[in-house]
């Protein structure tokens, strides 16, 4: 293949991978924005989402869309429960306590799932028969890639609508800016935080289901690496900033695909973390961040 063709093909692949990272990164960034917590259990919520999608399609025989919606709904409840049980009691505690708890919740979900369904890799059923389209030259795009992108963009538009146009979205922004002032408006801070966890977790669940139909294989520890990568994506865009997480996710996906495409797939994972280190050194606030962002 010519260099240009490799580039375009990997760009297409990278957009699919980046959609997944972006959806997960949104939850990281929204939760950080509102409670200043890096929710390390977030990648495992994505894993649970993938298993719910598997359960619905492989065992119940549902089609793609109902499976997606069910998984998003159940994970929204899971996210709210995690926050109430694990993080809320620590809201006044030093940040490190909540961070360690988040790692604990992550391990609990990952290994709890392993106990429940076994450690083996599961193969997602072919909910969507793959159709491949030739664009030009040797460049192809599949119906699954198109669906990933369409679902991701639809969810992002919906999220932007919620955050900017609805009262709960305005409340979320108010609480993330100043909790006490938000309370004086009559905003229920606890409910608003719950809503944020619900939305973030349902986006992660969507990513889990999409990954299931794209790569076909899921396992109980599948959340760890994409979770970390999505965290890198959120930091890359500027943690706490929603458009930053979207951009960071797509950028990271595309960079990874390029690295693999030019024959260095072994370097795929290190590249993500090298990006993290470079960002932390050069622009710690991220691409979209202002350089003074430590909030009260």
């Amino acid at each position: 293949m010519e260099v240009m063709e490799v580039f375009l093909q990997q760009l297409i692949n990278g957009v699919s991978l980046g959609s997944i990272y972006a959806l997960i990164a949104l939850g990281y960034t929204m939760v950080y924005g509102i409670v200043q917590l890096i929710n390390f259990a977030h990648g495992d919520v994505y894993m649970v989402g993938a298993y719910l999608g598997f359960f619905a399609t492989a065992i119940l025989g549902w089609s793609f869309l109902p499976a997606l919606l069910m998984s998003m709904f159940v994970c929204a409840c899971l996210g709210v429960t995690i926050e109430k049980l694990a993080y809320k009691p620590l809201r006044m505690a030093p940040r490190i306590a909540a961070l360690i708890t988040a790692i604990g919740v992550s391990l609990f979900l990952g290994y709890g799932m392993m106990l429940l369904v076994g450690p083996q890799v599961r193969t997602f059923p072919q909910v969507l028969t793959e159709v491949q389209w030739k664009l030009f030259g040797s460049i192809t795009v599949t119906n699954r890639q198109v669906i990933i992108l369409v679902v991701t963009i639809a969810l992002m538009l919906l999220l932007q609508y919620i955050v900017h146009k609805t009262m709960i979205g305005k409340a979320m922004r108010a609480v993330s800016h100043d909790k006490q002032a938000a309370q004086l408006m009559g905003i229920n801070v606890n409910n608003t935080i719950s809503a944020t966890f619900a939305i973030g977790s349902s986006l992660a669940a969507a990513a889990g289901v999409l990954v299931g139909i794209y790569y076909n294989a899921i396992n109980p520890l599948m959340g760890i690496m994409p979770g970390l990568k999505a965290f890198v994506a959120a930091v890359l865009g500027g943690i706490g900033i929603i458009p930053g997480a979207m951009t960071g996710g797509f950028l990271l996906g595309i960079v990874e695909a390029m690295v693999s495409g030019y024959g260095k797939s072994l370097y795929r994972d290190p590249v993500a973390f090298i990006i993290l280190i470079i960002i932390l050194i050069v622009k710690p606030a991220g691409l979209f961040g202002k350089n003074i962002r430590e909030k009260v």
Binding site: R173, H177, A181, A182, M185
Partner: peptide, 19 residues
């Protein structure tokens, strides 16, 4: 004052009527 600095004025007012 504790206004919501990153939001426009009309949104600040809307939030005042949150209930």
């Amino acid at each position: 004052r504790r206004i919501f600095a990153n939001m426009p004025i009309y949104e600040n007012l809307e939030l005042g009527a949150y209930l």
